[in-house]
Amino acid sequence: MPASRSSRRADMAAQPTCFHEADPRLALWRRAGVEGLGTFALVLAATGSGIAAARVFAAQPGMILPVTAVAIAAALVGLIVALGSVSGGHYNPLITLLQWLGRERSGVCTIAYVAAQLVGGTLGGAAAAALWGGPNGSTGGLGWHGVGGELVASAGLMLVVFGCMRSGRTDTGPFAVGAWLVSDIIATPTAAYANPAVVFGALVTNGPLHLATGSAVPYLLGEALGALVAFGLIHTFFRAGSAA
């Protein structure tokens, strides 16, 4: 008989793994609050570093993307290491939703996490715009031409996240995700937003990461499709609930 959702979550809690909180009995408002705070800090660092790089390298625009990629990855690694034991360190609704689809997280927790992440991301983008000011300096994304880029970027990121999660190597996850993200940002035409919370923040920020409203839906669609592709691959190649 298949394991129940509650028993599978208990198994995941008993086996230390990346991107799961150390103590799932901790009050939900605390765990969701950390997800909101971490997402706020991540999007603030991502959008703020983009604005800073655009100003510093105004005469060398080719430097903006790699500098921003390193800044975003470094911020994410630091935030996962610092706060991940409380909430799991997702800072990305795609991770939370795939855990829910995999019966590793309850529906109530998923709703709380995703809401906190989206609010945190929006506030992070707005904070960067308020701190730096000035015009957005961006074309606002690729519109529907960005669906494929976000699909590939999100699928790759989720493969790394859930591959680390299944590997049982709890200390490697933040660094593997950060390393992949540098490549993901540089290699994809959309610069790998790969996170609905970042899209929400990009709508209200300035600088290279700013998105026009016409790009938001295509990017979110690509991210959702990419996450589902990764979900299928992970469950094909990894035995559920076990280390590699």
Rank of each mutant, 00 (worst) to 15 (best):
M1W: 12
A3M: 15
A3Q: 14
R5N: 14
R8V: 10
R9D: 13
D11P: 00
D11F: 12
D11C: 11
A14L: 12
A14E: 13
C18T: 14
F19K: 12
F19Y: 14
R25A: 15
R25D: 15
L26H: 15
L26W: 15
L26G: 14
A27R: 15
R30F: 13
R31L: 06
G33R: 09
V34D: 06
E35A: 05
G36H: 03
G36E: 02
G36Y: 01
L37I: 11
F40Q: 04
L42N: 01
V43P: 02
A45G: 05
T47H: 05
S49A: 11
S49M: 06
I51K: 02
A54L: 07
R55M: 13
F57P: 07
A58E: 13
M63Y: 13
M63V: 10
I64K: 00
I64G: 01
L65W: 12
P66G: 03
V67Q: 08
T68G: 11
A69I: 03
A69P: 05
A74D: 07
L76N: 07
V77S: 07
L79F: 04
I80K: 09
I80Y: 11
A82P: 08
G88W: 00
G89E: 05
I95M: 09
T96S: 11
L98F: 12
R103F: 13
E104S: 13
R105V: 09
S106K: 09
G107I: 04
C109P: 04
C109K: 13
I111Y: 10
A112Q: 02
V114M: 03
A115C: 11
A115E: 06
A116D: 08
A116F: 02
Q117D: 02
Q117C: 03
L118I: 05
V119M: 02
G120Y: 00
G120W: 00
G121S: 05
G121N: 01
T122Y: 03
A126M: 09
A126V: 10
A127R: 03
A127S: 08
A127F: 06
A128W: 01
L131G: 07
W132Q: 09
G133I: 02
G134N: 07
P135C: 07
N136E: 14
S138F: 02
S138A: 04
S138T: 02
T139R: 11
T139A: 14
G140C: 04
L142A: 08
G143L: 02
G143F: 06
V147Y: 10
G148A: 10
E150L: 04
L151D: 06
G156M: 03
G156E: 01
L157R: 06
L159D: 04
V160M: 07
V160I: 09
V161A: 01
V161W: 02
M165K: 13
R166I: 03
R166H: 14
R169Y: 10
T170H: 11
T172Y: 15
T172G: 14
G173A: 08
P174E: 01
V177K: 00
V177W: 02
W180N: 13
L181I: 00
Y193H: 11
A197M: 06
F200E: 12
G201K: 00
L203H: 09
V204W: 00
N206T: 15
G207E: 03
P208K: 06
L211R: 04
A212T: 08
A216T: 05
L220H: 10
L220N: 11
L221S: 11
E223V: 09
A224W: 11
A224L: 12
G226V: 00
G226E: 01
A227D: 07
V229K: 09
H235W: 14
H235P: 07
H235I: 10
T236D: 14
F238R: 12
A244P: 09
